[in-house]
């Protein structure tokens, strides 16, 4: 564990009776990619605004790079780049002019600004489109321009609020790859908020799950799933069988089910249409496959599922329902 670069202590924000962020404690290590995961309206954006000093917390404190963001937001904003969700640019200016404007607000001299902006535009793959009006950029291009915009000030931390919203899958992958490589090359700490589990799982070193203003769990994906699902089966084998020409209550299915459940490591078997879900304490794909084929069932596909953020998420959503109501 390195030194922590973002520290939230007892951070609370209330809007009237509504508590958007509730006594949040969080610390993010320098150089890591941290995913802030939560459903819409969980208070992710509010937390981010408080980190930048754009909103004052009701109580508690934020320290970014060792600086109090509430009392000294300018210093924090010098070191932190923030990409809001659905970032906007001045449509009448070209992408390059938009970035130059940001650079000059950050007190770069004209020459430095031009150099840095051109370098960044090439880096995010907008070198060709740099003189096109920003109003004519596609969503994905805008998002990449946003990333370049954030990097203009050469930040120590970048905060991305729902950066992949509304980009097509290929665009998302490229964008996330870009974030990872930037973070590794330039030693930038990245805080990424999202409600897209898979994307967070792909790129983040660690994850915080955030529901109704509370941080419910923090750690990397493996740790989280271990901690959360120790009481259940670690493996679920999903087998899809060929059911053409078979009746719904074909005896062979029941037979296979009873044989499977007799196996030592199998803890549960569930059948849903043509799919078997076999919970087990060990990876026994091969045994299951053999047994199904032996039972005279046509096996179409077989896969092992580990717990992912999806399940973690669902679990918290189920638990989070009550929070959602009280909030």
């Amino acid at each position: 564990m390195g030194e922590s670069i973002i520290e939230l202590k007892g951070l609370t924000k209330r809007y009237g009776d509504f508590t958007a962020v509730d006594h949040l404690d969080l610390s993010i290590t320098k150089g890591e990619i941290f995913g802030l995961l939560g459903p819409n309206g969980a208070g992710k954006s509010t937390t981010i605004l408080m980190m930048l000093g754009l909103t004052e917390p009701t109580s508690g404190g934020v320290r970014v790079c060792g600086i109090d963001a509430t009392t000294n937001p300018i210093e924090v904003k010098k070191r932190v780049g923030y990409l809001p969700d659905d970032v906007g640019f001045y449509d009448q200016l070209s992408g390059r002019e938009n970035l130059l404007y940001t650079a000059r607000i950050n007190r770069l001299s004209w020459r430095d600004a031009e150099q840095r902006v051109d370098m960044l535009l090439r880096r995010v793959g907008l070198g060709e489109a740099s003189d096109k009006k920003a109003g004519r950029y596609s969503r994905g291009m805008r998002q990449r321009l946003g990333l370049a915009d954030v990097l203009v000030k050469n930040p120590a931390v970048i905060i991305l609020d729902e950066p992949t919203l509304g980009i097509d899958p290929i665009g998302v992958r490229e964008f996330l790859d870009l974030i990872v490589s930037l973070s590794r090359e330039e030693q930038v700490t990245v805080l990424l908020s999202s409600h897209h589990l898979h994307q967070v799982q792909q790129v983040c070193d660690s994850v915080g799950i955030f529901v109704a203003g509370k941080l419910l769990a923090q750690g990397n994906v493996v740790e989280l799933s271990k901690a959360l699902f120790s009481d259940r089966e670690p493996y679920i084998i999903e087998a899809c069988i060929d059911k053409t020409g078979m009746a719904d209550n074909d005896p062979r299915i029941e037979q296979a089910k009873s044989r499977l459940i007799e196996l030592a490591d199998v803890t549960s078997v569930r059948i849903d249409e043509c799919r078997f879900y076999i919970g087990s304490t060990q990876d026994m794909t091969a045994t299951v496959a053999r047994m199904l084929v032996d039972s005279g069932l046509g096996l179409k596909s077989l896969s092992v599922r580990e717990y992912g953020l999806d399940d973690i998420y669902t679990k918290y959503f189920e638990g989070g329902e009550s929070y959602g109501k009280t909030a």
Partner: peptide, 10 residues
């Protein structure tokens, strides 16, 4: 959406 971007500048 440009206001929040400008506000995030120092």
């Amino acid at each position: 959406g440009t206001l929040s971007r400008i506000m995030a500048q120092p």
